[in-house]
Simulated scan of single mutants.
Amino acid sequence: MSEQHIIRFENVTKSYDQDTTVLENVSFEIERGKFYTLLGPSGCGKTTVLRLIAGFMEPSEGNIYFNGKLINKIPANKRQVNTVFQDYALFPHLNVFENVAFGLRIKKWKKQVIEEKVKEALRFVNLEGYEKREISEMSGGQRQRVAIARAIVNEPEIILLDEPLSALDLKLRTEMQYELRELQRRLGITFIFVTHDQEEALAMSDEIFVLNKGRIEQSGTPTDIYDEPINRFVADFIGESNIVPGTMKKDFVVHFGSKTFDCVDGGFNENEAVEVVIRPEDLEITSLEAGKLKVKVDSQLFRGVHYEICGYDEDGNEWLVHSTKKATVGTEIGLYFEPEAIHVMRLGETEEEFDKRLEAYEGAANEK
């Protein structure tokens, strides 16, 4: 394992009985000093991954390595990992200082060292001067900062965050996204963040693992995941998408919506059935003559910064459009899009197969 990889999962499965497998044959690596997000719907296995890293449970099969060392049997209190829970798990009878100092007192650090470390941790989370404040007197955002200070004061190599923003209102949640990202950059340690909120994942992460039914569907940077979804699940879960059936006529040419279009994807078989993805913001409302597709408007909602327009093409495919232009329900409009806006997905393709196809295609293109 490379020195830069701090965590490695090797064919890890977690089952509770013969009928309940929550994580199935999962392998991945976590690099040191990055912000990772485990993203997926409820029950997909993301919190299980977090608990396996923390040492709160052991894998049923496979191995987990920390800095190259097998840690399957290493208890939680022996790992250089701290967890920030969804409810923060603060002690209501202790003030801010004592909450942050709790772990250090358990380890029997000297009083002066504890005071210095707690004050430093509170400065990191912008709570300097709050040492004597009672937890009951803190806002939701402040409580979260206390929980993070308690995590970082022990100087862990990894901080695990289990949906810590879910209880906050929208404005505070957005503010805390920026604060958490900036804190991770200042600390320079690995953050592994669990959420089911795709906007949160896209905004905060260096890399995202998209989980579904105990498996990793796709991993990559936010841009990779958003622009190049591997399959329908990822395309549909990460943002809003128009997904329609199509046929790959040849490299760079795809047919859908009763028409044939130039695109930028290759490596498919001739006349292969595919799925085509176009994001709503990549569709431009234009005249019927200038449009590449003709759509009859079925509904329209104002979303503040744009109109959300829904319509259907001649084949009955539904199209969602985000536009600053208004449309009229019941009328036909033209939709224009660039070839780069079209993303073609092979049916049933895994991430590994996708990577191999892309590598083979790019290799053949370079040879030519």
Rank of each mutant, 00 (worst) to 15 (best):
I6F: 15
I7T: 04
E10R: 00
V12P: 07
S15D: 10
V22F: 08
N25P: 04
V26M: 08
S27E: 02
E29S: 15
R32T: 09
R32C: 07
L38M: 06
L39F: 08
G40K: 04
T47N: 08
T48H: 02
M57P: 00
N63C: 04
G68A: 14
L70D: 11
L70I: 12
A76S: 11
V84R: 02
V84Y: 09
Q86K: 09
Q86G: 14
D87Q: 15
Y88P: 03
A89G: 12
F97T: 03
E98P: 10
K117I: 08
K119Y: 01
K119P: 06
E120N: 13
A121F: 14
V125L: 09
E137R: 10
E137I: 10
E137C: 05
M138E: 00
M138T: 00
M138D: 06
G141M: 01
Q142T: 09
A151L: 12
E155C: 04
I158A: 11
L161N: 09
D162G: 13
E163Q: 01
E163C: 04
P164H: 10
L165R: 00
A167G: 13
D169S: 11
Q184G: 11
R185P: 09
R185Q: 05
R186W: 15
L187W: 08
I189F: 14
T190Y: 10
F191E: 02
I192R: 04
V194R: 01
H196S: 06
E200Y: 05
L202Q: 06
L202K: 04
A203V: 04
S205H: 01
D206F: 14
E207S: 07
V210P: 04
Q218Y: 13
G220H: 05
P222N: 12
T223N: 14
D224E: 02
I225C: 10
D227H: 02
I230W: 03
F233L: 01
F237R: 00
S241K: 13
N242K: 00
V244D: 12
P245H: 07
K250I: 09
F252D: 01
V253D: 11
H255Y: 11
K259P: 04
T260D: 15
T260F: 08
F261I: 07
G267K: 02
G267W: 03
V274A: 01
V274I: 04
E275S: 15
D282C: 09
D282K: 07
D282V: 11
S287A: 06
L288T: 07
A290M: 01
K296D: 15
D298H: 14
D298Q: 14
L301D: 15
L301W: 15
F302W: 09
F302Q: 11
D313S: 12
E318A: 13
K325I: 03
V329I: 15
E332M: 04
E338I: 12
P339E: 04
I342M: 09
H343S: 00
M345F: 10
R346K: 10
G348I: 06
E349W: 04
R357M: 02
E359F: 00
G363F: 08
A364Y: 07
E367C: 10
